[in-house]
Amino acid sequence: MLQTPNQTVVFLMGPTASGKTNLAIQLADTFKARIISVDSALIYKGMDIGTAKPDKTILEKYPHHLINICNPEDTYSAFDFMRDANKQIETAFKNGETPILVGGTSFYFNALEHGLSNLPESTKASKEKFNQLLHDKSSAILHKDLKKIDPQAANRIHPNDSQRITRALEVFELSGKTLSELQGNKQPSINHPIKKIILMPKRAELHKRIEARFLSMLENGFLEEVKTLKQNPNLHENLPSIRCVGYRQAWQYLNGEISKTDLIEKAIIATRQLCKRQSTWLRNEENALVLATNNIKTTLQFIKPCAHLSS
């Protein structure tokens, strides 16, 4: 069995529907590994179908850490992820495992590799306050509030990006300084060698997979999943969890705001737009193995220079 040294971290990245989970499993079959999810949607409990979460059979055989760690009403920041991922990486090293960080949330990968600005940590009180503000107002109104405080950050952040808007407002309240003032003072996160693998199928192929996958989600009970979420009085469509692609459109459909046809069209378009954003970010990654198809042999050859055969 191939065994990578305990100081190497594998980043397995790619846009949505690129086949990352299958490749991670193949790697875990080849050497002793710890799979760590890098996905801002898979963190939520009860959001399984619409996030394309690996099923129970896969998770029993191949545990994915940092999946199902939050309730949908909870706030979870890049700082939270960086802290939790580092704990998982160190646990992997202690257990003689190679950490395989797999997912599509590029901002999380970037935070791990390059660090984040030295911003104040969220408190329970501040999380509750800004979740309530988001519920009472809307991301668009809060964006206007941010523009008065920190126009530079407001220009960078989309009015619909509720998570980043509330975080910028929270930073100002906790520190008395704007996000723009504090950014740039980054602290390193992990100090281990990183092997980056990017799965990047052709755009036409990704679009086909995205459409087929969403239609399959509907057949497998996605709307029933969202109906269950809607029974939770703490949830509303401005929360980051409900703004995940597919969930927002399903929420609107169940509210009677759009038709079933519109739901399907809007969800597929939103997922393709997410795919485009992810792909754009990934094209700027350096020193990575880029694969158009799942190729375990090429992947292992890329990893092997820092690996040895166990006795």
Rank of each mutant, 00 (worst) to 15 (best):
T75S: 15
I43R: 08
G46R: 14
G50A: 01
I58L: 03
P63D: 03
G46H: 12
F93Q: 12
Q88A: 06
F93R: 15
G103N: 05
M82I: 11
M47F: 03
Q88N: 07
A78M: 11
A92I: 12
R83M: 13
F31H: 15
F81K: 01
T91R: 12
D55I: 10
N71A: 11
T91Y: 10
F81M: 03
F93M: 12
M82E: 13
L27G: 01
M82Q: 10
S40N: 10
T98M: 14
G104T: 09
V38F: 06
Q88I: 02
E73G: 08
T30W: 12
A41Q: 13
F81H: 04
K32P: 12
I89K: 12
D39M: 02
F93W: 13
G96L: 04
L59V: 11
D39E: 04
Y44F: 05
A85T: 13
T91M: 13
G50R: 02
I43F: 09
N68Y: 09
E97G: 05
P99F: 02
T91C: 11
Q88Y: 03
Y76R: 01
A41L: 13
L59E: 12
V102F: 01
G50N: 02
F81T: 04
K32E: 15
A78H: 14
R34I: 10
I69K: 03
I100E: 12
M82R: 15
T57M: 06
F31P: 05
H64C: 04
L27H: 05
T98H: 14
I36R: 00
L42I: 09
I35P: 06
E90M: 05
C70H: 09
Y44T: 00
H65W: 12
I69T: 08
P72F: 01
M47D: 02
A85C: 11
T51L: 01
F81R: 00
E90S: 02
D55Y: 05
T91D: 13
K45Y: 06
E60C: 08
E97L: 04
G46A: 11
Y76F: 05
K53V: 05
F31N: 07
A33D: 04
I43T: 07
E73C: 06
H65T: 11
A28Q: 11
L27T: 02
N68W: 12
A28T: 10
G46P: 09
D55T: 08
F93C: 10
N68G: 10
V102T: 15
F93I: 15
K87G: 09
D74N: 05
M47K: 02
I49A: 07
